[in-house]
């Protein structure tokens, strides 16, 4: 809800601004207090809220599953172990469905990707005003609670996946095989520049589409929550409730899509011919 002191556009801008820590113009290191300041910090700065929330949620995921792993025995499983095993089975089925190679890293990777993104996306369902106002009360100028609305987070993950794609492409096909794949198809060796261009775009588009799809969905979702919050408080529920319910689907779907595409891209990296 907009207060008298803020215009609608200021309100939206405030809610979309990350808490950035970096090199200030006056020489020291500190928190940026405005969007311009954050922009001026350049590359060597950190969005503290993203790092904090994603780390926290990643640790929550690992903690819960580590607890389940410690309790997992061949005996009758308890509730938490049951849930963990169900998740593991669900991921394993997904991997079996789309990954034809043999690599023990893929399934744990997919599990981590899914639950980490899932938890980060869930932060979108926290009412949009709660966290920024709480932060303001504690003297923190900005705080965006959904890490997946920060392209740094989504690109961070997709670059991780991209590095793995490159690593396994070279490992499985050999450097020559990988370069051959990039240059010798689809037009044969005489169409080399065209091949390189097409395959290059194909390769580069993988991490970009992976990151932007997730970022775009979550950013748009959050944007709509913020816009709904501009309405008078007594009518907000009529839009925010349906959107939140619909958003539960998006939250799950985006995590699932990211996981599935990660598996598919790594499967492509493992295939000799495609």
């Amino acid at each position: 809800m907009s207060s008298e002191a803020l215009t609608s556009s200021e309100y939206i801008k405030h809610h979309l601004e990350h808490l950035t820590w970096g090199h200030l113009p006056d020489g020291g290191w500190g928190i940026a207090h405005s969007a311009e300041q954050a922009k001026q910090m350049g590359f060597w700065s950190f969005t503290v809220d993203t790092v904090l929330m994603s780390f926290l949620l990643g640790v929550v995921f690992l903690f819960i599953f580590k607890k389940a792993a410690a309790a997992a025995t061949a005996g009758v499983p308890s509730g938490l172990v049951n849930f963990a095993e169900w998740s593991v089975e669900f991921v394993e089925d997904s991997v079996k469905g789309s990954f034809s190679g043999k690599n023990t890293m893929i399934a744990p990777l997919a599990l981590t990707v899914f639950f980490w993104i899932y938890l980060m996306n869930w932060m979108d369902l926290i009412p949009v005003d709660y966290v920024p106002y709480l932060a303001k009360a504690m003297g923190v100028p900005f705080f965006k609670v959904v890490p997946t609305t920060d392209p740094n987070a989504t690109f961070g993950m997709s670059i991780g996946v991209f590095i793995l794609v490159l690593y396994y492409s070279v490992k499985i096909k050999g450097l020559g095989g990988f370069i051959g794949e990039l240059t010798l198809q689809p037009f044969g060796k005489f169409g080399l520049p065209a091949n390189l261009f097409l395959e290059g775009v194909n390769l580069i588009s993988k991490p970009i589409s992976l990151a932007l799809r997730l970022f775009g969905n979550m950013y748009a979702g959050e944007m709509i929550f913020i816009l709904i919050a501009l309405l008078p408080f007594w009518i907000q529920w009529s839009l925010s409730l349906p959107w939140a319910i619909f958003h539960i689907l998006i939250v799950t779907l985006q995590a699932f899509i990211f996981m599935t595409l990660t598996i598919v891209y790594l499967d492509m990296a493992h295939q000799e011919h495609h």
Binding site: L16, H18, T20, G22, A38, K39, M41, G42, F43, W44, S45, F46, T47, T50, V51, S54, F55, G58, F61, L62, F65, M105, P108, L109, L111, T112, V113, W116, D150, P151, N152, A153, F155, G156, M157, I159, G160, I163
Partner: peptide, 21 residues
């Protein structure tokens, strides 16, 4: 919404989480 060093931090975090898992 700027691309900054968080990118690197997130990649490292990602790798660590996957490794731990």
């Amino acid at each position: 919404m700027n691309i900054n060093a968080t990118l690197l931090g997130q990649t490292i975090m990602f790798v660590m989480f996957v490794w731990f898992c």
